[in-house]
């Protein structure tokens, strides 16, 4: 207990002393997860919107697949990205294994189904009477699609925030494709795993506190967005 308390105190000291190693890890984590969520949103929002708005054969199957992929095990994603980017893999010539780009790719794959499935759910749950109202106002098909997406904007924003939460908290995949190289691919989650295994709890705890704080910020943002989206009638 005493060791835990002293580790916690030293963790706060590290945070307050603006330790360059610590802040380097935090900055890289934000960069990797930020880029991943931008990519996941750029792909996932149109995909989710398309699934909700366009009728085509196999649509139900695509939605089920997406929902299944929401629970993708990160280590499996890590393994697949590893195999693709490894020297003998189909994209091995790019030399991206053990780079931040590989980590962005892995996190994008993990966040994409969440963004797409939640965007789909948000747009699909727009009140049918609102859709009727849009049509009754003389909207063309494309105008109606645009207005329905605007109506679901808070649900879509919530989907993107949830995608960020998934990407930022992930450890297995980035460890496998990033390699946890100090000063290059070491992010908060992989650093915590490493420092804990080493028995060096100060840095791990300091990073844990930052991760928790980010998680709190993400959740507060999510709540605020959902509250705005579900304004009572």
């Amino acid at each position: 207990m005493q060791e835990m308390t002293s580790s916690l105190v030293r963790a706060f000291e590290l945070l307050l002393s603006l330790d360059p190693v610590l802040y380097g890890i935090i900055f890289l984590s934000l960069q990797v997860s930020g880029l991943a969520v931008i990519a996941a949103a750029a792909l996932g929002v149109p995909a989710g919107a398309g699934l909700a708005l366009v009728r085509f054969p196999g649509r139900e199957a695509a939605v089920s697949l997406l929902n299944t992929f929401m629970g993708l095990p990160p280590v499996v994603v890590g393994l697949v990205v590893y195999l693709i980017l490894s020297r003998s893999g189909p994209m091995g010539f790019l030399g991206l294994l053990y780079s931040p780009t590989a980590m962005v790719a892995a996190q994008t794959i993990l966040a994409f189904p969440i963004v797409a499935a939640l965007t789909h759910a948000g747009i699909a749950s727009v009140d049918p009477i609102v859709k009727d109202a849009i049509r009754s106002l003389g909207a063309t098909t494309s105008q109606a699609a645009r207005l329905v997406v605007i109506e679901a904007r808070y649900a879509i924003l919530a989907a993107v925030i949830a995608g960020y939460g998934r990407a930022a908290a992930e450890v297995g995949a980035v460890l496998m494709v990033g390699g946890n190289v100090e000063g290059y691919t070491r992010v908060m989650t992989t650093a915590i795993a490493l420092e804990t295994s080493r028995g060096d709890f100060e840095l791990a705890l300091a990073l844990g506190i930052v991760l928790l704080f980010l998680s709190l910020v993400v959740n507060l943002a999510l709540r605020a967005v959902q509250k705005r989206g579900a304004l009572v009638r």
């Binding site: 009477i129 609102v130 009727d132 109202a133 009754s136 003389g138 207005l147 808070y154 009638r233």
Partner: peptide, 12 residues
């Protein structure tokens, strides 16, 4: 033409 529905149908 225009339509007013029985249930509230306002946009957010």
């Amino acid at each position: 033409m225009a339509f007013v529905f029985q249930r509230p149908s306002l946009f957010n």
